[in-house]
Every structure is written in C-alpha cells, then in structure tokens.
C-alpha cells in the first residue's frame, strides 16, 4: 500500500501517539483521488456483517461508511431511542430505611419490558396519565417475622419474610383497556432479581409507579442500551520475520489467538498474524525494544466493529433499526429545512 492510501484508510498506532485519525475522504483532500460521493461507489463498498446476535447483545461490522454515520447511530442508540421507565412514584407508605428519594431513584433505573413504540409521550403538565402514555406498577410489600423459621436460623432470609424487595415484586396494574391490549408477559420488569431495598420486620412499602416514555438524553434510565459502542478493526503487520523466543514473546504481547507461532518444516518457529480482529490494541509490544520496530499496528478507518447491549426493552437489532429510522427522520427534517430555506439540494 502506498503512503497516501495508507494515510487515507488506516489509523496508525505508534508508541506514544496515534496518527491519521481524521477522516479525509472528501473531495480535494488529496490530489488525484476522486472522493466525490457517489451512490454506486458507496453501494459497492458498503457492507454490514452481523457477527453475533443474542437476546441482548449484538455485534455487527459496518464497512465502508464514514465515522460520522456510525457515531450518529451510536449516539442515537444511547440518547434518542425512547423506552419506558418509572418516572413518577406515589409513595403511600415507606417505613423502610431507604429514603423516599433514593427509593424512587432506584425504581427509575429498573429496566421495564414494554415496547415503547406502542406508547405516546406524556403531555407536559399531565399528572394523571392515560392508557396511551402510562404504565402503572404497584409495589406493596411488608416484612414480617417468619413463624416457621428454623431454630438455628441466623440469616435475615430465614428469619424474616420479604426481607429483600426485588424488582419481581413490582406488579403491573393495567389502566383502562390495557388489560385487553397487552398480555401479562408483555409488560413487566426485564429482570425480577434486581434488589430494590432490604426490609426488617415492621417495615412496609406501599407505592404506585407511573412509567412513561422518555429518551436517554433526558435521563439515563430511558436509554435502551446498557452501552452502544464501536471500535475500528485492528490490523497488525509484521515488518520482518520474527522467530524463536522473540516470536513467543510477540505472541504474548497480544491477546490470545492474535499471533500464532508456526513451526516451519526447517525447525524454525515463526510468528504469523492469525486474527488481528481479536487484538485489544493494548500495544504491549512497545514494551520490548527489540520488537517495537518490527511490528506496525494500524486500524482500518472505515471498518467499524459495533456492539450494542440492550437493556431488554427491545432486542438489539430492532434498536439499531429504530436508530437508523431516527437518523433518517433527522435527515428528512434537515432536507426539509434546506428546502424551506430555499437552498437547493445537491
């Protein structure tokens, strides 16, 4: 690869700094390169590979796209996809030691399994809420002494009943026709083993909660993802043949499976790059003076390894689709703005 195209397509990780991080593929950055955007070129280059898809986790590659686009999807995932979360807590009784505000805060952060697309945003100033914009949960629990506790019991779990309040104790109360629209399995907390509070005999919780639709920008509890992020595909180039003890040392500098030491028929043991994708970019090879000049660490600028961890309200693939929809909506809005401002499209 020549220097220019390497500069254009690779981020280089050097010992003390990273170079060529900026995106340069727009017209007139480099002479002799046509960076004008074209649909054809994009379609040819653009690829999405789904690497791993689980209930809550999704890993996919986006290749041939600008960092801005990938980042926009990430940002929207974090901040602009709505979910349902506890927003209002009506505390009728709380004799536990957890303060009302702290309890309400904890309840807010519990992920709620409910499809936010089926609900509306609540109107500002509306305290009551309607079936379209509100889910109501109830938490009524009282801790008592366990009359059947074994004689030698010492732990609070044995001695008392309901000594721990979990998210599973939250009960969904349908309002109006919600009972007909949704099944009990549709609307619940994602996990039922999140500890909310610890109680002791005589302590009692009695409260109602209103879940509303909101976005992560407003409060992190509305964020549909635990995290959404991406990294660039690492690339390792060995600049010379590394063999013997050095090869072993080199392999140790990277995560398992990145470098393999191949036994040649002539008895030499030579390091080969096996799977650079597994590299964590820890750059530990720079520890060794004799190796640091024989390895070149780069990352591919337009190959994004994205990962999305859903909190459980929606599956991660749906979330990405939703994010793209939001992005498209934003684009459309922007184009309309351009149109109305009288600025012509390209």
């Amino acid at each position: 690869m020549d220097i220019i195209s390497e500069k254009r397509t690779r981020v280089q990780l050097r010992e003390y700094d990273v170079i060529d991080t900026e995106t340069t593929d727009f017209p007139h950055t480099y002479p002799g390169y046509d960076d004008a955007w074209s649909q054809d070129k994009f379609e040819k280059k653009f690829k999405v590979n789904i690497i791993k898809k689980e209930d809550l986790n999704l890993e996919y590659d986006m290749i041939g796209v600008d960092a801005a686009i990938t980042n926009a999807i990430r940002r929207i995932l974090l901040a602009e996809i709505p979910t349902m979360a506890v927003e209002k807590v009506f505390i009728y009784n709380n004799t536990s030691i957890v303060q009302d505000e702290v309890l309400a805060h904890r309840l807010g952060l519990i992920p709620i399994k409910a499809d936010p697309r089926l609900f509306e945003y609540r109107q500002e100033g509306d305290a009551e809420g309607t079936a379209e914009d509100t889910l109501e949960f109830q938490l009524q629990i009282k801790c008592t002494k366990n009359p059947h506790a074994p004689k030698d019991a010492t732990t609070p779990e044995d001695l008392f009943k309901n000594s721990k309040v979990y998210s599973g104790h939250m009960k969904w109360i349908p309002i109006e026709n919600q009972g007909e629209l949704y099944k009990d399995s549709d609307i619940k907390t994602v996990y039922d083993d999140i500890l909310i509070a610890k109680l002791r005999p005589g302590h009692e919780l009695d409260m109602k909660m209103h879940c509303v639709k909101g976005i992560g920008k407003d409060h992190a509890k509305f964020s549909p993802v635990a995290t959404a992020s991406y990294r660039l595909l690492p690339e390792i180039t060995l600049l010379r043949e590394i063999e013997g003890e050095q090869a072993d040392r080199l392999a140790k500098c990277f995560s398992n499976g990145v470098i393999e030491v191949v036994n040649y028929p002539d008895g030499r043991r030579v390091a080969k790059v096996k799977n650079a994708r597994k590299d964590t970019c820890s750059r530990n090879v720079f520890q060794h003076d004799d190796l640091k000049d024989s390895v070149k660490l780069t990352r591919v600028k337009d190959h994004f390894i994205c990962s999305v961890e859903s909190t459980g309200a929606l599956p991660p693939d749906t979330l990405v689709c939703e994010a793209i929809k939001v992005l498209m909506g934003k684009c459309r809005l922007f184009l309309n703005e351009l149109d109305s401002a009288g600025v012509g499209r390209l």
Binding site: V18, T21, T23, A67, N71, A72, T280, S282, R283
Partner: peptide
C-alpha cells in the same frame, strides 16, 4: 495484570471521541 487482561501495560487506552466519532489521536 493489565497485560493479562488485554490492556496496555501503562494503563493507557485507545479512545474514540463521542462527538466526532473519530479515533482520538492520543492514548
């Protein structure tokens, strides 16, 4: 221990800017 867990031995990570989406040019 850091190396064992795939991290840089000095504790420096490669970060991506949340605003531009580009790789940060320093560790």
């Amino acid at each position: 221990e850091l190396i064992k867990n795939g991290f840089n031995y000095l504790g420096k990570d490669t970060l991506t800017s949340g605003i531009t989406g580009e790789h940060l040019s320093g560790y």
